[in-house]
Design a protein around this nucleic acid. Sequence first.
DNA 1: AGGTTAGGTTCATTCACCGAACTGACGGGT
DNA 2: ACCCGTCAGTTCGGTGAATGAACCTAACCT
Lengths: 182, 182
Amino acid sequence: MALGKDYAHQQCSIARALEVVGERWTLLVVRDAFYGVRRYNDFLVHLGVPRAVLAARLQALVEAGVLDKRRYQESPPRDEYVLTERGLALWPVLRSLGAWGRAEVPGAVPVRHFHHADCGTELGPYGECPLCRVPVPPADVEMRPGAGLDPDPADPVGRALLAPRRLLVPVGREDAPERGNS
Amino acid sequence: MALGKDYAHQQCSIARALEVVGERWTLLVVRDAFYGVRRYNDFLVHLGVPRAVLAARLQALVEAGVLDKRRYQESPPRDEYVLTERGLALWPVLRSLGAWGRAEVPGAVPVRHFHHADCGTELGPYGECPLCRVPVPPADVEMRPGAGLDPDPADPVGRALLAPRRLLVPVGREDAPERGNS
DNA sequence: AGGTTAGGTTCATTCACCGAACTGACGGGT
DNA sequence: ACCCGTCAGTTCGGTGAATGAACCTAACCT
């Protein structure tokens, strides 16, 4: 654990949160998980993170109970990483960070917009719907591309994320038929 | 810039935010600034961060417009670091991180409580007052110690933060007589 | 048999973090 | 005048983590 040594004696739940999600790349992995990325290789091409770092982060997030590693096929054994309840609870953190990055970092053009799927209203800075006045769970959030989004990303995951889509819906199978279960 | 190289080509305002506040110690420095810490040495003893790292983080935060470095006395030239508007806008990020750390990291006992100073109600996870139904700006937040707080911290800053206090009020001059003058 | 894909592991290099020591400007005591 | 202490850093050697490239395994495709 990189951060544990010195953060541990901090008397603060912020420090404890940062011990789990404060390392480089970790929050971007979680962000991609919200966007529907589930597989090692998809994280890899979309983030451009070194393979060893990605493996370490995924394992740490699984051990922290943020992601769940689940076998989705046996014949070539393949696992996917899915957000747990604890991971889904990080949605406000990502929302507030993204809102700050868009509003306060100079030269930031809106890259993605997040809307309440039920009513179409754009979410407020904490992920709440200003119209319905309720916090919107990530499963009810629709993501739409913004003006600052690269219209032709190099990686297939980036291309799949160009279209409007629900959060948490697995990426890469939009036009592929559902596997198996009804 | 440590993180800039690879985060830069990310199409995401979260990544842009993390380029500014995503490095180790950075968010804890900002947290302490909300708690009223303003001086180099106070950050140093309260965080236990290496001096070189602290100097680098403070400088980076000043360059990013999160902190303002201002001269508060001339005779021995002394500067203090105060949150700017842009820095104050990070309050929801710290709130959501702290709420997640308290709720989702196992074994976390509440360390500090945050109340709306106007009505005394404890804040919700996004820094809003559930009674008044308004987002509470940090200047109107009263911080109170919780059960998990070390009752006898080694550093004087930690001791000063034991008492209930407003956020953003400069720390370290509660009971200390003004040095020199008068 | 050979190639491809998914999901890693290993390795050498680079880079950031760490702790301790040093600097330098000032102020106070004797 | 001299020494000591404080504040705010900078410098420096050692350690550990991040990086990119190469390698490995297991299974499927042809």
